[in-house]
Design a protein around this nucleic acid. Sequence first.
RNA 1: UGGGGCGUCGUCAAGUGGUAAGACACCAGGUUUUGAUCCUGGCAUUCGCAGGUUCGAAUCCUGCCGCCCCAGCCA
Length: 776
Amino acid sequence: MSDSPSLPLTAIEKPTHFLADIIATDQAAGRYEGQVVTRFPPEPNGYLHIGHAKAICTDFGLAQAFGGRCHLRFDDTNPEKESDEYVRSIQEDVRWLGFDWGEHLYFASDFFETMFELAIDLVERGLAYVDSQSGDDIRSSRGTVTQAGTHSPFRDRTVAENLQLFHKMRAGDFGDGTHVLRAKGDMAAANMKMRDPLLYRIRNAPHHRQGDKWCIYPMYDFAHPLEDALEGVTHSICTLEFENNRDIYDWVIANVDQSRLKTQPKQYEFARLNIGYTVMSKRMLRQLVEKDHVASWDDPRMPTIAGMRRRGIRPQAVRHFVNRVGLAKANSQVDAELLDGSIREDLNFEAPRVMCVTDPLPVEIRNLPEGQVEWLEASYWPHDVPKTGSRQVPFSRNLVIEREDFAEVPPKKWRRLSPGAEVRLRYGFFVRCEDVIKGPDGRIEKLICSYDPTTRGGDSPDGRKVQGTLHWVSADKGVPCELRMYDRLFGVENPGADGDFLQDLNPNNLKVTQGIIEPAAAKTAAETPAGGEVRFQFERQGYFWPDPVDSTGDAPVFNRIVGLKSSWGKPALKTPSKAQTKTKAKTKAQKVGKRPELSPELAAFAAELQGMGAPRADAEVLASDATLASWFTGAVQAGAKAKTASSLAVNELRRAAGETPLDQLACAPVDLAELCGLLDAQRISSKGGKKILAVLVEKGGSAQALMAELGLEQISDPAVLRPMVEKLLADNQANVDAYRGGQKGLRGFFVGQAIRATGGKGDPKVVQALLTELLG
RNA sequence: UGGGGCGUCGUCAAGUGGUAAGACACCAGGUUUUGAUCCUGGCAUUCGCAGGUUCGAAUCCUGCCGCCCCAGCCA
């Protein structure tokens, strides 16, 4: 794999998403001694796909960007599904993508002994027990999302009994499913995952690495956090569906014998990748292979890494794609077009242009004698790719062109060949179609053309124009080849959305044709070892490379990596017009839910608060939070204006408090009242009030003193502010013009700048008034 | 209906009280011996909806609506 320095695609960009923010913050705070250790933790039970590529780029990319390291760890805790074939293929795929884990290759199974000891310790400390209920009983006693579960009858076994049973479990004294080890969680927890989570189960099955050494295996929720902590991982990044598991993750890290852990890792989640017109679940991919809808896991139609590699996609393109997709927590599905575009962008500067006719239509050049061959020079690169190199292309009496480049009755704007029309054969000559030969079935068998010898190379001395330029190959000298024209695996954007996803397969996801390729390209392909760096752009067709498995020097087989973009022939997928979108937005009139009624007691309380002067809406909010209400009443009793106090309590206090409970703040209602006074006297702006409140709740103090300390007392004198505003406008004439030209959004810019110019003290109301006056 | 998440352009996605980034797609021009590439320009008066706070709200408050995840001895 050669990374071309000329391509921006290979540049390692510092990520800017929320995970990068978290890591940067941790690093700045000196957490984990500034270390950043991530991990990519696949279970070796299937092939990696492009969704994993996103995870891999994220895990390794983040570590790289922050000077840390990323481990490759196989999460092999379920012996029945896992095998060495997958650990081999996964390593190959990660490496192919361009990432290196150095010596940090781990297997969960290597930690089994330590995990067992940690589990024993949990039992000894009464935090885990052996449950001997049946699977069904465990399930039903877990309760439902709306109902609490019930305790297992075995939950209160003695430590000694638990220990003895757990050891016997390990010793192989029991059959599958007879006993499990469970943590003592909370059977009434709202998070179902915390209802006495299972830690170990019995599986009398050989493990791909441990053989018959174990017959009990740890569950994901127990094993995963331990693997992380045992390896020294700091940031454990996974996908959204594990959000519910984070509580157990933290529980395990917090409750296990601390002396054994290298780090106290934290789990973070991001949205997994979805792409239109394909599927990403292992289950579905497996079905495609097992039911022979594709040839294998590395079938070029598969979204697997192996499939993409065999198709001819370069890892640079995959990484570029992942970068373009971004990273966030919103479930989303990206356009299939984005992947295609990334592949094209990667190959555009990498793939030399050659000619290959994929669906040959014979053309006889009437005025070129049989046996005569004109060798023409053809550049490998178009004018805007800064690379050089060319080859010789033979032009002879018998040629082939693309069947779809000829139309007996040309449609409007046809820029190809038709009866009587003249076109250029790329790097060759102008040819004119003089006759059409048809078979008995009416099918066109051959075109009779004449060529203009003076147009050698493709330029006419008289400067005349032609319809268009066609690719072509000499039938006499060209080399027959097989072309595998891969297309989208599925015919609909969301396979399986209504029913069986297999029904949505695109029947034309592979079309095999027999084509003819120009000799120079055939030679290059034949001389390159299988899977070597040889990718072409077949002009006007797309990007291709020899299939690494099936192509041979004698019988070349080319895979279409991706087609060229085309604004012809495809009825351009319609994007809803703006007008339609607007209508849609308006029609999507939402059901507006009713505001729930307050209970009679709360309503009475609200009425009481309203009686004290709180606006109705505020009163209702205050009423439903007794502590908040007490802040309001306290402030009013301390002399605050009711409206100001309620507004501050409702709109600001809770946020300012953050995690701190409202009854544990560093200040008292009387301080709030003082702040209200400042606000009402217009001595500070609302913004200044917020700043003071933030300090008040955390550190306490006097509002008035803080105002002075923070320099927040307002400057409201227009005479003072006017020159500043005038200067601001003078300094930003362009923006002033834009504003007057209708760009009213700029007003915020002016206000912001003006306030900044006064060190935050300018009274925004006065500034606004001045702006209104001066800007018109 | 319990809990946990998430709603910003057709699709991704920045933004966390002061001018709604960027990319892909799309549209319009230009260059072109690939209907490709490349270049130029356009493309959210508005951030799920409704109220409220504020001089100023995508960002704060309240309520509602919608989507995803959780009841494997899978990961």
